[in-house]
Write a protein that binds this DNA or RNA. Structure first.
Lengths: 234, 234
DNA sequence: TTTGATATTATGTCTAGACATAAAAACCTG
DNA sequence: CAGGTTTTTATGTCTAGACATAATATCAAA
């Protein structure tokens, strides 16, 4: 069969999912151990391991050494959202990307960003087919990214420049709905206090902040993604 | 070293990340093949494979048979957001969960949901410490989930009941910012047209829809997650 | 009964070798 | 040179066996 018999790890994964789905193995049930499953499926234990491990990654199974493998009681749905470069996001929708720098200066970040050292403050507007798409309000730590000081950010956005230039180890991201303030509503062609989708994100390189950004999207923006790509069920 | 020498797949992964991070292997660069890396690290090829595969999953590497493994040019950031049961979400914040059914009836879904068959329509309010938290407006396909007809949904929310009862294969989910309509603003103690965070989600079991829901959160709601847990960099 | 040492067990990972497969590259042929 | 066929190559996956590790279970001593 071109691909998988019942011996490939994907086939095993599918069979395990079927049993969970069919309630042969209900939530909370401890499933047979890897050795037994390997014998049943007629394959090596490593193959079973790969299948179960990937199901555990997806949140469907819970595994603990010695304790065995259980079907998750509350399979927490996980949705993975992509955070692309804004230009790519716009171009992938088949729209013409535009970029416009609004301001760029060195300043002391507001206290809620916890900064007392001066940082590079860049604000800009990204447009799609000429219409306002998202307003970028960004602070860049010039200690961790000194190269930013040499960048005018008048043609290439900080968003794009950082991705290819500044490595980071981790970050956090928040999504919320907020009323557009005066600046935002003016730039985004929105009414005052119009509901806008806001993403705020901070990235770190080890202990040091790299950049903090607030992205305010024009009204109508929607993030869309799929749950269950690949091995997720439930 | 209690754990890994330089022969464990995690150690290899860390070393590969270090080289990418340090620009020894810049974006777009084709890295040595698995056999060579295995020789360099003094381990089996399978071990290198595991390390690289997991980095590819994280979006840091791009692999193609025969072509080899390249450092991703545009490492698309991926943020994984959890979609917990609402009760859990509230209780995890240390708040007292409350639930209140608003309406439950059989009806024809609005055309934008594509339904022409009657379905079960359930609306309810979830509260945290007595304050409105989220308004749930849900349609349940009674063909795929016939058991729903026997459920009053007056004590246990459809959200919670479905998770432990109705299996699904996949779904899609959207996040947006919208102005609260009359019903929503009244229930959520919000001003008319106040910006509210909206999640809409549809889940399927194979070809059949299971349920479609719109969750309207009270003002101030924010989804928060972390990028870079585990092997992600950039 | 509690505490600490020990045995047991299921998963986690590594190895060396093998075959499968996709895709690029090289090689024909007309 | 165009178009199709074969070769080559790097990744994808499987196997059988081994040791590592975490965590439970058991049992003995205080």
């Amino acid at each position: 069969m071109s691909g998988a018999g019942i011996r490939s790890w994907q086939a095993i994964q599918t069979e395990v999912m079927r049993r969970i789905h069919a309630r042969e193995w209900p939530p909370g049930h401890t499933i047979p151990n890897e050795v037994d499953l390997a014998r049943e499926f007629g394959c090596a234990r490593a193959t079973v391991n790969r299948a179960l491990q990937s199901l555990a990654d997806a949140g469907l199974l819970e595994r603990r050494r010695k304790a065995g493998t259980r079907v998750a009681l509350h399979p927490v749905g996980k949705a993975t959202v992509d955070i692309p470069v804004i230009r790519q996001e716009i171009e992938e929708r088949g729209l013409r990307y535009g970029y416009q720098l609004i301001a760029r200066n060195i300043d002391i970040p507001p206290p809620r960003l916890g900064g007392k050292n001066a940082a590079l403050h860049v604000t800009a507007l990204h447009t799609a087919d000429g219409a306002p798409y998202v307003f970028e309000d960004r602070w860049i730590n010039t200690d961790t990214v000194p190269g930013a000081l040499d960048q005018p950010f008048d043609r290439i956005s900080a968003n794009e420049w950082l991705v290819t230039t500044a490595p980071y180890t981790h970050g956090d991201i928040g999504f919320s709905a907020q009323p557009a303030n005066a600046t935002q509503s003016a730039l985004l062609d929105a009414r005052a206090n119009a509901p806008v989708f806001v993403i705020d994100r901070t990235t770190w390189d080890g202990e040091d902040t790299v950049t903090t950004v607030t992205l305010t999207y024009a009204p109508g923006y929607r993030i869309h993604t799929i749950i269950g790509t690949g091995p997720v069920a439930f």
